[in-house]
Amino acid sequence: MNVPAAWYLVLAAVLFGIGAYGLLTRRSAIIMFMCVELMLNAVNLTFVTFARTLSDIGGQASVFFVMVVAAAEVTVGLGIVVAVFRRRHSTSVDELTEMKG
């Protein structure tokens, strides 16, 4: 018998927390993108766990689409990082203050 779904759900929650903490505290835009990937993977793990527990393939299909969106997000996001770096020679999010209200 496989380990209970609760173990995987707690693991996913911990992974999500680590990613969220990194997103809130790190300054480099690239590291922040990596933390977003961590959070997305935590959610994917939750989806797969529920798909296994409820015997529903829809959870795995959702993970498939999350992966596609994550790939698109990384492509555009890193493109923005490159464009910003060309102008500012920095990837620190603290220095992007033009839109300060």
């Binding site: 609760a6 929650a13 927390g17 409820l54």
Partner: peptide, 29 residues
């Protein structure tokens, strides 16, 4: 903030059934 979020999430899950909802009849992985 992260500790409250994760702790609350785990407490919420642990205080109820971990997984609820009907088991799918269409496709089982």
């Amino acid at each position: 903030g992260v500790a409250v979020t994760v702790g609350g999430l785990i407490a919420l899950l642990a205080s109820s059934h971990w997984v609820t909802g009907a088991t799918s009849v269409s496709g089982s992985p």
